[in-house]
């Protein structure tokens, strides 16, 4: 049976917002929760001990908790935070950089995160020998690219697919949110706090295009594979990942859960989701076309 996971919060939210959010999540039908700051080392509203406290509460609520590591590791202080997570001793870790894999390899089981660039079964098998028990498919991969990996994946390896949320498309050394405010990154005044769903970047024709989230760039459209649940299940995908947004995450979890557990037409779920996605949706990556494209979803029951 497929499990439902909530990915790490990619935005910078106020401390109380984060704590309230996870309190709400504890009561939702999600099986796995990924915790931690993966985007920017300057975001400190929760420290490792705070995350561990949240993790304990979610564990008590029956969730499997995984601690996610920062994707772009540059400085010694980034490495120090990484080592503290790798050595936490209680929770599984999602490695989002090969430096994290290096620290975890042979020591404890880990999740190979979506930014490790695993595009083939050989890379996946190698990570399995180092201790990976689950991997998250890079979001730009299509179903057709996943299928042969599924047939050849190492025994016991779980496959997780990013199925809902604004797509994390790129990481940079530069902070685009600070740039938008003419501030240097080192003195960003934590402007990301003002954009709990990211800062919208539009084309000169005023079309929503991308979303600036500090050093990360996301799609404006929400990637949504709720119409593909049957295919995902038939391919043997083990875990579906929902990416948190500031509003409606519990509702989205509930809609996915319902569609996973009982017969459901994508159309009815989509009707309810329509207003929950800020700038429309897309599913192009899964279909092997441009990521921003959206296929026509049949309204037949």
């Amino acid at each position: 049976m497929m499990k439902l996971a909530l990915g790490p919060v990619l935005y910078y939210w106020a401390r109380d917002t984060l704590l309230d959010f996870y309190q709400e999540i504890a009561a939702t039908p999600v099986d796995i929760v990924y915790l931690g700051e993966t985007v920017c080392s300057r975001r400190h509203n929760l420290r490792l001990q705070d995350w561990l406290d949240v993790a304990a509460k979610l564990t008590a609520a029956g969730k499997q908790v995984v601690l996610s590591t920062q994707v772009l590791i540059e400085s010694e202080s980034d490495l120090k935070s990484l080592r503290n997570i790798a050595d936490n001793g209680s929770f599984m870790v999602e490695a989002n950089d090969m430096g994290a894999v290096h620290l975890l390899a042979g020591k404890m089981p880990f999740v190979a995160g979506p930014h490790l660039n695993v595009y083939n079964d050989r890379s996946l098998s190698l990570l399995a020998t180092l201790g990976a028990q689950r991997w998250v498919m890079p979001p730009e991969m299509s179903g057709a690219m996943l299928a042969p990996i599924q047939r050849m994946r190492p025994a016991g390896m779980e496959t997780e697919v990013f199925v809902y949320g604004r797509l994390p498309l790129a990481f940079s050394a530069r902070c685009f949110t600070a740039r938008a405010h003419n501030l240097p990154k080192d003195d960003c005044q934590f402007r990301c706090l003002d954009y709990p769903n990211g800062l919208s970047m539009r084309t000169r024709e005023d079309q929503p295009f991308l979303v600036l989230n500090g050093i990360q760039t996301q799609s404006a459209r929400t990637y949504n594979l709720i119409g593909e649940l049957d295919t995902l299940r038939s391919m043997g995908v083990d875990v579906l990942r929902i990416s948190p947004q500031i509003a409606h995450s519990a509702k989205i979890i509930s809609l996915f859960r319902t569609c996973m557990d009982q017969p459901c037409t994508p159309h009815s779920a989509l009707l309810q989701m329509d207003k929950l996605m800020p700038d429309g949706m897309c599913d192009g990556y899964w279909r092997g076309s441009a990521g921003l494209e959206q296929s026509h979803i049949s309204s037949k029951t």
């Binding site: 772009l72 930014h115 498309l169 790129a170 990481f171 940079s172 050394a173 990521g291």
Partner: peptide, 11 residues
């Protein structure tokens, strides 16, 4: 962007 970690083009 960090090379290898940018999929803007495929998006």
């Amino acid at each position: 962007m960090v090379e290898g970690r940018c999929t803007l083009s495929s998006y």
